[in-house]
Amino acid sequence: MLVSGMTRPRPVRGATLNGESTRFNLPQTEADGDWLDARDAIDGAAPRLRTTVTVERARTIISRNASPDIPFDRSINPYRGCEHGCIYCFARPSHAFHDLSPGLDFESRLFAKPDAAALLRAELAKPGYSARPMALGTNTDPYQPIEADWRITRGIIEVLAETNHPLTITTKSDRVIRDLDLLAPMAAKGLAAVAMSITSLDPKIAATLEPRAPHPERRLAAVSALAAAGVPVYVSIAPVIPAITDHEIEHLIARAAQAGARFAFFIPVRLPWEVAPLFRAWLDAHFPDRAGKVMATIQSIRGGRDNDPGFGSRMKGQGPWADLLKTRFDIAVRKHGLNAERVGLRCDLFRAPQGPQGELF
């Protein structure tokens, strides 16, 4: 169903429209619900959108990268798409590779990889495999709501725990504490660390910015639980959005330290490819009073554009606004004693998986 431009927010969804892929000539479509969704529409409001999950039979599970400004060279993505619906998510454009929209499709039409643990076991058993920290949560959240039923992330961690393989996790969900029985023993060996992403402590802002992610207080509670279990915890203030969340930097760092986090980092908002028009539409729907100011400030950080893809600068930004954000962040971190040490995960304990699958390689 073609739409000319839907700007009215759907209930508990991030994107206000489905958006158009400018790279693959994907037509702009509205993600359809079923007849129950249509029945739920009241007084002309957009119907609720149901989430669907498609099984993806991947042939490999470890993704490699050589980016000079990313602190890991391998990662695993148990899912494609993310129901959290964060409007700024830089992974949204990846849905265009499946002829799906980076907009509403990204957060409602998901893909799951149930064979992930078996594929990982096979890849770790290959001759010559050398362990380096494996990153989870680098594209979409490994603890998004469907993980409660699919448990793919837990299966991956079980293999990494069995083989003493180092692991980092980035998530917005307190569901991570479900797996403390695996993560705490790994952390005791120097094999695990978790980064909890908290962009705002304001429930109203969080509800529109990342509508299906857990409440910020639940995330802080998860930080406390992880820290109490001996798991090194980072708080990721990413992204920082000028004129919407930047005023919270100092308070976020204070609360993170109070909860037991030992480290923190931030990234100014990035708007690659199809994310920029989705973000602009979101601003028009939720913050029309300051949309122009927000985009002008973002462009000042990104060299006059909506996005700067350059290595290094894409993570830090440039210009007076970027410098001010960094100065404020550095002062707050020093005040609360964060980032005072370095945590290096151990790679020397790795042992290739044993058993019939391992013996094939």
Rank of each mutant, 00 (worst) to 15 (best):
T29M: 06
P78F: 01
L191G: 02
I267Y: 08
D69Q: 13
M315S: 13
N65P: 03
G317P: 12
R50T: 14
A161Q: 00
E250Q: 00
A131S: 06
D246N: 00
N307R: 01
S94V: 04
M295Q: 12
E162F: 10
E217V: 06
P133Q: 06
L182I: 08
P102W: 02
A193P: 02
F265C: 07
P9V: 09
T168L: 12
V55E: 07
V159S: 05
G344Q: 02
F106M: 05
S63H: 14
A227P: 00
P114S: 02
L2Y: 12
K189V: 04
E123V: 07
Q318N: 13
R218H: 13
I61P: 04
S63I: 10
D323V: 06
Y88Q: 06
I157A: 08
A125R: 10
M1F: 09
D69C: 13
T327H: 15
L36K: 15
R328G: 11
L201P: 03
T153V: 10
R154Q: 15
R270W: 04
V223F: 13
A66K: 15
L26T: 05
A116V: 07
H215V: 08
L283S: 12
S21D: 15
A184T: 06
P185F: 07
W150R: 15
V343F: 07
W282R: 07
H84P: 03
G103W: 00
P211G: 03
Q299N: 14
Q354R: 15
R109T: 14
L104D: 10
I61V: 14
A322R: 11
A296F: 02
A66Y: 05
H336T: 05
P353R: 10
R154D: 02
L104F: 02
T297W: 01
T170V: 06
A229F: 05
R132H: 04
I177K: 04
D179H: 03
R10C: 09
F97D: 09
A46C: 04
A58W: 04
V53E: 06
K335W: 01
F329Y: 13
A276P: 00
A46V: 04
P133T: 02
